[in-house]
Lab assay of single mutants.
Amino acid sequence: SDFTIRIGDRTLHLKNVSEEILKILEELLRRGIDFEELRKIVEELIK
């Protein structure tokens, strides 16, 4: 499924993301992860 994360004025667009990855990202966001850290993790996950 497609997913968009907005943190402040920044946006991260994800396409064809599995439910498992979404759950991980949601947990990281709940813990207050930094946007740049989140972006790096996402890039690793979707390689």
Rank of each mutant, 00 (worst) to 15 (best):
S1T: 12
S1N: 14
S1A: 08
S1Q: 14
D2A: 01
D2Q: 01
D2I: 02
F3A: 06
F3K: 05
F3L: 14
T4M: 09
T4I: 15
T4G: 01
I5Y: 02
R6V: 15
R6E: 15
I7Y: 06
I7H: 01
G8I: 00
G8S: 01
G8N: 04
D9S: 05
D9Y: 03
T11A: 04
T11G: 01
L12A: 00
H13P: 02
H13D: 04
L14I: 10
L14E: 00
L14T: 00
K15H: 13
K15R: 10
K15C: 10
K15Y: 12
N16A: 04
N16F: 03
V17N: 02
V17M: 04
V17L: 04
V17S: 03
S18A: 02
S18C: 01
E19D: 13
E20W: 03
E20L: 03
E20F: 02
I21F: 14
I21W: 10
L22T: 14
L22K: 15
L22E: 09
K23F: 14
K23I: 13
I24V: 11
I24E: 14
I24Y: 13
L25G: 02
L25M: 04
E27C: 10
L28W: 05
L28I: 08
L28A: 10
L28E: 14
L29H: 04
L29N: 04
L29M: 11
L29Y: 03
R30N: 13
R30C: 11
R31K: 14
R31Q: 13
G32P: 13
G32A: 06
I33G: 08
I33E: 09
D34G: 15
E36G: 03
E36Q: 07
E37Q: 10
E37H: 08
L38W: 03
L38S: 01
R39W: 07
R39A: 14
K40E: 14
I41L: 09
V42H: 05
E43Y: 08
E43C: 03
E43L: 09
E43W: 06
E44T: 10
E44D: 12
L45D: 06
I46T: 14
I46K: 09
K47E: 11
K47R: 09
